[in-house]
């Protein structure tokens, strides 16, 4: 293990990442404004960002495998990852906040409760507050919701199980049992993918059969934005799991030194916990 705190002399990937993000955002903005080049810019930017991510991580992994990093560097990575996950938690908090505000204040007020008496009387006399709702104007038309104790419950069990399998993989790694490690990792990837498949089919069902869309008033908004961003994070997590599995197969990580593995495991647990929040507050209650 290195004696010094490793400070790379140059960093070539960040500027690539900045350019990628810029092209992507420029493209997305143009796309939303119906400019024909929008999608192409978005695509190009995304490709650049992907290249950057792979390049950057490859470099870090290479340096790590060379043994350039000491305990202090490892500590920085760990703390950095923890704070990153905290920032993600706060991102979800904004959307949970919107859900709670809508359910506890906005919708009851529109229905005439408390401070909303005159709002209801003057503007929306027909409206009865209830959850789920698409609001007084019933935006997006009638819809039905997805019952909690069917597919969502199954998905909960799947994600919880995946939390278990990744822990088993970690134990195997700490005992240097490569076979078991790769096995449990593969199981975790599989569970993540099944979750995503179910989630996708649930969306199709909602759009095609239930009339529940992103435009279904505040219910549709909170439902799809919360589950959508969560799904995006599961997708990302699954990709990260796949990479880690491949690295395990390539013989990376040692009993003591496997921060990359742990970071992904933490991330996966975070995604798991967010889902529990979703299951309770979006589906059940």
């Amino acid at each position: 293990m290195a004696e010094h705190y490793y400070v790379p002399h140059t960093a070539k990937w960040p500027i690539v990442g900045s350019i990628g993000l810029f092209v992507m955002m420029l493209g997305a903005g143009s796309w939303l404004n119906q400019a024909a080049i929008g999608p192409w810019f978005t695509l190009a930017g995304s490709v650049i960002v992907l290249v950057m991510i792979f390049g950057w991580f490859a470099q870090v992994i290479g340096e790590s495998e060379q043994g350039l990093y000491n305990r202090a560097v490892d500590g920085s990575f760990r703390q950095g990852m923890i704070w990153f996950i905290f920032s993600e938690v706060m991102f979800f908090a904004a959307f949970f906040g919107a859900l709670f505000y809508a359910r506890m204040f906005a919708v009851p007020w529109l229905g005439g409760e408390g401070a909303g008496a005159m709002t209801n009387e003057l503007l929306f006399p027909e409206f009865d507050a209830a959850w789920p709702t698409a609001g007084p104007a019933q935006l997006g038309g009638d819809f039905q919701i997805i019952p909690a104790f069917e597919l969502p419950l199954l998905n909960t069990l799947i994600l919880l199980t995946s939390g278990l399998t990744i822990t088993l993989a970690h134990w195997a790694l700490k005992k240097a049992k490569r076979g078991a490690l790769v096995g449990w990792m593969a199981a975790t990837v599989a569970l993540g993918s099944i979750f995503l498949y179910f989630q996708a089919s649930e969306y199709v069902h909602a759009y095609q059969d239930l009339g529940l869309t992103l435009g279904s008033g505040i219910y549709g908004s909170t439902f799809f934005m919360l589950t959508g961003f969560h799904g995006l994070h599961v997708t990302l997590g699954t990709i990260m799991l796949i990479v880690i599995t491949l690295r395990c197969m390539a013989g990376h990580f040692s009993k003591k030194n496997h921060f990359g593995f742990e970071a992904v495991a933490w991330y996966w647990h975070f995604v798991d916990v967010v889902w529990l929040g979703l299951f309770v507050f979006v589906y059940v209650i």
Binding site: A134, G135, G140
Partner: peptide, 13 residues
């Protein structure tokens, strides 16, 4: 994208 977080007609605020 047609959400109504901030639109009372859709139950937002």
């Amino acid at each position: 994208f047609g959400t109504s977080f901030f639109n009372a007609a859709g139950g937002g605020d």
